[in-house]
Design a protein around this nucleic acid. Sequence first.
DNA 1: GTTCGGCCATATCATTAAGGTATCAAATCA
DNA 2: TGATTTGATACCTTAATGATATGGCCGAAC
Lengths: 298, 298
Amino acid sequence: MAELRHLRYFLAVAEELNFTRAAERLRIAQPPLSRQIRDLEGDIGAPLFDRGTHPLRLTEAGQFLREEARELLASFDRALEGAGRIGTRNAGWIGIGFVESAMYGFLPKILGRFRQQHPEIEINLTEMSADQQLIALRDRRIHVGFLRPHIETDEFEQEVVQFDTLAIALQSTHPLATAESVTLDLLEREPFVAYGGRLRPNFCDYLRRLCRDAGIKLQVAMQVDQPETALGAVAAGYGISLVPQSLAGQGREGVVIKPISDRPPPHPLMALYRRNEPSPVFQDLLTIVRTNNCASPS
Amino acid sequence: MAELRHLRYFLAVAEELNFTRAAERLRIAQPPLSRQIRDLEGDIGAPLFDRGTHPLRLTEAGQFLREEARELLASFDRALEGAGRIGTRNAGWIGIGFVESAMYGFLPKILGRFRQQHPEIEINLTEMSADQQLIALRDRRIHVGFLRPHIETDEFEQEVVQFDTLAIALQSTHPLATAESVTLDLLEREPFVAYGGRLRPNFCDYLRRLCRDAGIKLQVAMQVDQPETALGAVAAGYGISLVPQSLAGQGREGVVIKPISDRPPPHPLMALYRRNEPSPVFQDLLTIVRTNNCASPS
DNA sequence: GTTCGGCCATATCATTAAGGTATCAAATCA
DNA sequence: TGATTTGATACCTTAATGATATGGCCGAAC
């Protein structure tokens, strides 16, 4: 089984581009180094170096692994050091689960402020889907999850931390492209660019439920995976689509994003956490999240 | 030296909360498992389990390490598999360096589209400062870097990929808080919340240079590390500050962000890459970055 | 073209460290 | 308190890492 040693050795060779010098640097002899690299290559199933050239050259796979190896070794050290700090200084840690879209501005901001208040607290950040967050909360593997609706649970505390609404994306040549806003029933009268459930099952479900509740029957013209891709499809004239209003700020050629005047569907970011979490550090995090002041409809 | 084996073993115990069962799962005997855990704890310098309780319990450090270990082991496998795919299918990889603020919407969007076009390409993402990006480009450790000015180099190709301007943040009780826009010379007449060079030396330098070029003398009232923190300081009445216009969308209580009418200072996101990069995959990435259509002043 | 030197691979031996067995001590539970 | 579960200790075995010796290949220099 491959071990970190293999990466350490590989990295030495990748940096020296010379087995002999790398071996010296590692304080081992050259033959065992050759064997370890060979073992690693066997494990990977592909060569990492172009042999027979002077100087030695990394293959594409080797170049990739060199970067990954750096990152991995650094992360490993950080993890052990972090655990050590927590254990010795009796510091703490906070585990955070989040859906990808929470990374679009919200989380970096929160984390920046939190780190400033609590530089001694180790933070474990893991991107996970909404249902993975539920499981992780139950297992106490994270302290808080950030997700989009629709979760129906009273097992955990839940609160809105950032408010967004859905808006309608139109091709810029559309008759309504110059209107101030549009109404929701426009969705029934135009072909629709829908979301497949593959990448964002929750967002997809949410839209489905929304349309059912509003009594809207969509004419699905195309399926895409992400709101950004939907914008592309709209620009290309496949139809209209529903996207988060916040995407309007980005401005994309061929598309306009119009607010919905009658019943704008909400698209909030939620925080989910266990009731009665005692940790004062966690309470501080919640305070930061709340004073972020994005929790009111715009 | 600590190895992945230690993490694998630790994870088994952490999940079973029982050395004997964990050993069975790992297909080894219990005593060597105990020893490996002890070695790991020695390396870390803190206990990972509360011994002497039934059932076994993880210490805080142990809980943290459990999450980190999961992540690390998964990353390790991903890295080896990725390298294998590159080597066998003759696929490729793209290395991307980026400053933190590129993560605020820009990069996730680009990556989403790129992954869709090239699911077979491995992506190595590394957050690094602007000067680290320069070094990494030279070392061919990344193919492209995303950074904020000010970099003066003709060693690499450079282009604007997202345009933003700086705006002035005022306390919402400020007389000008209701104005449409303000002028740059307001900076001279009010105490200023400035940026220390610790976290974002480039941004800090950029502001300094900007003020010097515009002939503006700031009255620095406070130093903060990040624009978000600056907003907090402004809300608290320490003074006014310069922040990216894009922060205006987030809305924060006690602060208004006003565009600068006379000479709005640009704050673009740049892409930096080697000239004559032949890879067609890389060219595709550039195309996606360019058709992102955020490169024109708003 | 031939030779020399650098460099990596292979083969074999030595040593270290991981894994196994037997046993003990401590905590839990009846 | 005695039986049982469970982790720690001591000691031995085995496997894998590391060292030494050597050979072959490639490139550079004469």
